[in-house]
């Protein structure tokens, strides 16, 4: 089944996901949504890893391993990020990114 789908289709979908993620990250004002956008970006990269592995080096597994690592990192990142967001909420009573510009100068 997967053999019928061309590499291009995978790349198109992953590119779409990537830019949707970028768009979301740049435009959303809610920290949670921004976090979700990052997840989209990471997953688009995962797709790339797996697909390239499948099409270019079918006998090797580095791409799979790498996407597993990314998933693990993404999970821990989400945990840390949500912890930060909760702390921000406790301090600012808001998770609107527009209000969070204290880290300047």
């Amino acid at each position: 089944m997967i053999g019928n789908i061309s590499l291009n289709s995978f790349l198109v979908i992953s590119t779409l996901m990537f830019f949707i993620g970028i768009y979301g990250f740049l435009t959303r004002r809610n920290l949670i949504t921004m976090l979700m956008s990052i997840e989209l970006i990471l997953n688009s990269v995962n797709i790339n890893f797996v697909v390239f592995n499948r099409f270019l080096y079918p006998n090797q597994l580095q791409g799979h391993f790498f996407s597993l690592i990314v998933i693990a990192v993404a999970a821990s990142e989400a945990a840390v990020a949500i912890a930060i967001i909760i702390n921000i909420y406790r301090n600012f009573k808001s998770i609107d990114v527009e209000n969070l510009d204290q880290m300047k100068f």
């Binding site: 990250f25 740049l26 435009t27 921004m34 990114v97 527009e98 969070l100 510009d101 204290q102 880290m103 300047k104 100068f105």
Partner: peptide, 14 residues
Amino acid sequence: IKGLQSGRVQQYAF
């Protein structure tokens, strides 16, 4: 040039 350092994450990302 310190205006560039706005503190807004999204601007940096952009």
